[in-house]
Design a protein around this nucleic acid. Structure first.
Lengths: 210, 210
DNA sequence: ACCAATGCTGAACACTGTGTCTATTAACGG
DNA sequence: CCGTTAATAGACACAGTGTTCAGCATTGGT
């Protein structure tokens, strides 16, 4: 339900684009409301008739992105709770490529990291619920708390996503990147580093280990 | 080589503590220089005779923390390039527990995420070089680019570290937490989720997958 | 114990950016 | 076509910044 008035839509879009480009250029703290309205070619008063402040604009932009992402992920999730298809990760990477600037802004923690926290937490919740239904469906007992597992997986995902978006020229396709990520995450670092077989048991980590 | 003058040391310490506590209470953007000096019980002018602005203080505090961490990690690194001891991760977690507030501030991306980026990047570089020397030492061929591997591992580590610091009451000891993290990271998500054996090969991810 | 050097302080300063308001003009949609 | 709503320029009080300076207090070295 986008606002009906054409002027409003236009103005908010201009503000969004101006914010994103300016923040990537100078960093969130070095962008003023006047900078934004100037680049958007709008009066400063106009800004305040849409958002109470700079933070509110950023919050709105990020929330919008999340909703868009959720919509694209929704049809994929039932499938992924059955096997390890890697499809949600692929869709995330595609979505990120289509909204590269905004994703970079978020992943770099601009705006006091609030955007990144919001994004991370939302992803983590979604991932945890997929893990949960997968565990139930296959009747397996997770060896590690699913909340922790979800956090670790999201941390891994977003670190690689940031690398993939920042590296120029593009190092690989979204398919290749998520395939690699999937292999690393499912098989583990021991395998990824090039070793064969099972990793050694972790060294005893008591207060005095020889 | 700490500054010799006792007054200087005292003042900088007070500023550091005031900054950290205030940022955790209100968020970086909602803390003014006057807030800091007031809590530290110092004149506002004093602040500017030490740091040009708020950002500089935060940068300094984070850099100091990094140097302290590096010093504690240095003796452990040669050992860890031989096997997968998990000792650097354990030391990181211990260091974080001893500097809980500052770590929380960093991991939450306060201060436009600059601190977090600085911290993440430094860790990533260190980890990559360990991976590199391990690969050389054991003469194995990494299956994934070591830079990517390092980023993923640091992303995983810091996500779990943040969870461990934020969860109250403390869910487990540093030894338990890093042991769990090590198992997850080395053996992978397939194992951690409770499945047995090797994960299925990733589904073909071409433009048209059935 | 002394004292030159250095750090701390409060007050005043100009300046930048914020958020609000108002009267006016322009564009919209039904 | 017209009543409604959005955009705008300009003015306003205000909060926080970063600088300066003259005084006072603490310091470390001799």
């Amino acid at each position: 339900m986008p606002t009906t008035d054409r002027r409003t839509r236009r103005t908010r879009g201009l503000l969004r684009d101006a914010l994103v480009s300016l923040v990537l250029e100078r960093g969130y703290a070095n962008v003023t409301v006047e900078d934004i309205t100037e680049r958007a070619d709008l009066g400063r008063a106009t800004f305040y008739s849409h958002y109470p402040d700079k933070d509110a604009l950023l919050r709105h932009v990020v929330t919008e992105l999340q909703e868009d992402l959720d919509e694209r992920l929704r049809p994929l999730v039932p499938a992924s709770s059955v096997g390890f298809t890697g499809k949600p990760a692929l869709e995330l990477f595609r979505h990120a490529r289509e909204n590269r600037d905004l994703y970079l802004l978020i992943l770099r923690g601009e705006g006091d990291g609030r955007a990144l926290r919001q994004f991370t937490d939302a992803r983590t919740d979604a991932v945890r619920s997929v893990f949960k239904s997968r565990a139930d469906h296959h009747e397996v007992e997770p060896r590690i708390d699913l909340g922790v597992l979800a956090r670790a997986w999201v941390g891994e995902q977003l670190a690689v996503l940031r690398w993939w978006l920042e590296t120029d020229p593009a190092p690989m396709s979204a398919e290749e990147a998520t395939g690699m990520l999937q292999n690393l995450s499912l098989r583990g670092r021991y395998w990824a580093n090039g070793f064969e077989g099972d990793p050694p048991d972790p060294a005893p980590t008591g207060p005095e280990s020889p």
